[in-house]
Design a protein around this nucleic acid. Structure first.
Length: 557
RNA sequence: GUCUCCUUCGUCUAUCGGUUAGGACAUCGGAUUUUCAUUCCGACAAGAGGGGUUCGACUCCCCUAGGAGAUGCCA
């Protein structure tokens, strides 16, 4: 198969190693060494892809090398983009970038009952926000367009029929009601599933093909894949090694073409991956059990399957597949929660993967360079919100003040603090950035951290002003002292002011904090605030004094 | 139930048969400090269990246990 050095192997480290390719089964997390052996060519079916590739689906635009990696993210617009999807997309993207290949977006909108255009929009918005771009896709086009499955409708029936005429698939006339009863037992997990049957019973498999064809012309039907019985299907997973399934254990004769004429994921996925010249299929491990089924389809079509790489899943804290009940999982929620896309990308990029020992912060560009299947883990990873929060803080602190000020503006506007397009206000926010920056864990913290600089905070309850062991009267006189000192010394440096207060405190037999806490609460409206003198400087002496007087009054006489 | 995959600190991870098993987050303690935060320092904390192979096993093999996923005319 000389020319069989094909797409699927593109970007691998070459065929230099040709010893045992077989991954050792079972245990050991030391997959690295083993995986190296996977770089050897795999068994092929002596099939030359280019001869079989339809003209519309030539994945190799002229001028590009035959070995180019082509991977895709193929979401179904039936929900908001979530962490799991982003992870899959990101890893595909990184793989493509690291190999100088193409990253493709394909919309798998074959589930008409759950489809919504809003979700398509959400998909675009999400990845635009994240800054992850595809080389080919519905919006940017490409050599194997269209990239929306509903626009490739005819292709799927064509291919399903082809499988029928090949004797590898068949018409099925069983109603959904009949089939449903085979699944009912799966629901009661624990219970008496003794001898329960699962999946379809292959009822229509042996209808005479000629008769079936006639019936199909008038009767509502689906097309099912005829799983060859008595065989074993195996494939080499780039990450997991050799995986073998007895055909009896694969989903019995799954539906390929639904009764509404749309393909199921299985059909559309295989047909499009082939036609679009996809070389590597990287997807979450939840897909692994349908991979043998896909391999059987490739074989039935006489096509060379792509390389498969099943990524470790992302779990919630309870160790189960990440879902809504674990908290925020849609990217929208993270966006609205004040996360930076860079932080999310960095964090998600490290779930189930590692790059350089001892490093945590990786800008996207570095990930693009460093990504490698060899550094992927096999075990699932738990999504840790606390760790993400840390990443977010890191990226916030790395963001230049001007940029951060702009990012924070929508939150200030929403809190009613900022007026849109007010240049003076924007300048003030920028000026406050050095003080606020290291106090922001999320962008949404901006109003609570710096709001007092712009809007008059309510006067706190008297106790809020009290230094330790102080009562109202003591606090009031301390605040009066602080006010007098401020009025007298104000346009001084922070150091000078602090020295002045320290000296005065000593004179009064107080601690520095006893003088400054009431002042802080009066000026900022809170016991926790950015540095006091800096805040006063931003606020201006007059406004500060006014707040102090207000507080003095509230503390009584 | 069946099949498949997985198994290092609470969490994310490093370890390519020989290490005091390293780092990060979290937690706790300390330092800096006008509060909070940041930052810095320190502490706590791991090879699921049992058998092999080997001079030597977290690393290789087997078994057990545990976890997860799949078992749809959803993807």
């Amino acid at each position: 198969m000389g020319s069989g050095a094909r797409l699927a192997r593109a970007g691998r480290a070459g065929g230099a190693r040709r010893h045992s390719r077989r991954a050792a089964p079972g245990g050991g997390r030391r997959g690295r060494l083993r995986r190296r052996h996977l770089l050897t060519p795999r068994k092929r079916h002596g099939y030359n892809p280019s001869s079989n590739r339809p003209s519309r689906g030539n994945a190799r635009p002229p001028g590009e090398t035959a070995m180019q990696v082509r991977v895709r993210y193929a979401p179904s617009p039936t929900g908001l983009q979530h962490i799991g999807g982003v992870r899959t997309a990101l890893f595909n993207y990184l793989f493509a970038r690291s190999k100088g290949g193409k990253f493709i977006l394909r919309l798998e909108d074959t589930d008409r009952s759950r489809f919504s255009q809003d979700y398509v929009q959400n998909l675009y918005d999400t990845f635009e926000w994240l800054g992850v771009k595809w080389d080919e896709g519905p919006d940017v086009g490409g050599p194997v367009a269209p990239y929306i499955q509903s626009e490739r409708f005819d292709l799927y029936r064509e291919h399903a029929e082809r499988l029928v005429s090949l004797g590898r698939a068949y018409y099925c006339f069983c109603g959904e009601e009949r089939v449903a009863k085979f699944h009912s037992d799966v629901q009661d997990e624990e219970g008496g599933a003794e001898g329960a049957s699962f999946g379809y019973d292959r009822h229509c498999r042996n209808i005479d093909p000629a008769e079936a064809k006639v019936r199909a012309a008038s009767e509502r039907h689906v097309i099912r894949l005829k799983i060859p019985l008595g065989e074993t299907t195996e494939f080499e997973d780039e990450l997991l090694g050799n995986i073998a399934w007895k055909n009896e254990d694969v989903n019995p004769d799954p539906v390929l073409l639904k009764s509404d004429g749309f393909p199921t994921y299985h059909l559309a996925n295989v047909v499009d991956d082939h036609l679009m010249g996809i070389t590597h299929v990287m997807r979450a491990q939840e897909w692994i059990s349908s991979t043998p089924l896909h391999v059987i389809m490739y074989q039935a079509f006489g096509w060379e399957p792509p390389a498969f790489c099943h990524l470790p899943m992302v779990m919630g804290e309870d160790g189960r597949k990440l879902s809504k009940r674990h908290g925020a999982t849609s990217v929208d929620e993270f966006r609205k929660g004040g996360y930076l896309p860079e932080a999310l990308l960095n964090y998600v990029g490290m779930l189930g993967a590692s790059y350089e020992d001892g490093r945590d912060l990786y800008p996207l560009a570095d990930l693009e360079r460093l990504f490698s299947v060899e550094h992927l883990k096999k075990a699932p990873a738990v999504f840790d919100y606390k760790r993400l929060e840390w990443f977010n803080g890191q990226y916030i602190r790395q963001t230049p003040d001007a940029e951060l000020a702009a990012l924070v503006m929508p939150w200030l506007e929403e809190a009613g603090i900022a007026k849109k397009g007010d240049a003076a206000f924007e300048a003030a926010v920028l000026a406050a950035m050095p003080l606020a920056k290291e106090r922001l864990h999320y962008l949404r913290d901006a109003p609570s951290v710096m709001g007092f600089l712009f809007a008059e905070p309510p006067v706190p309850a008297p106790e809020e002003f009290f230094p330790k062991k102080f009562d109202a009267a003591m606090t009031r006189s301390a605040l009066a002292e602080a006010r007098a000192l401020l009025a007298a010394r104000f346009p001084a440096s922070d150091e000078e002011l602090e020295e002045a207060y320290r000296a005065r405190a000593t004179e009064l037999g107080l601690k520095l904090g006893d003088l400054l806490m009431p002042l802080r609460v009066a000026v900022t409206g809170s016991r926790a605030s950015p540095p006091l003198f800096g805040s006063i400087r931003l606020l201006g002496l007059d406004r500060s004094l006014a707040r102090i007087d207000r507080s003095l009054a509230a503390l009584g006489s």
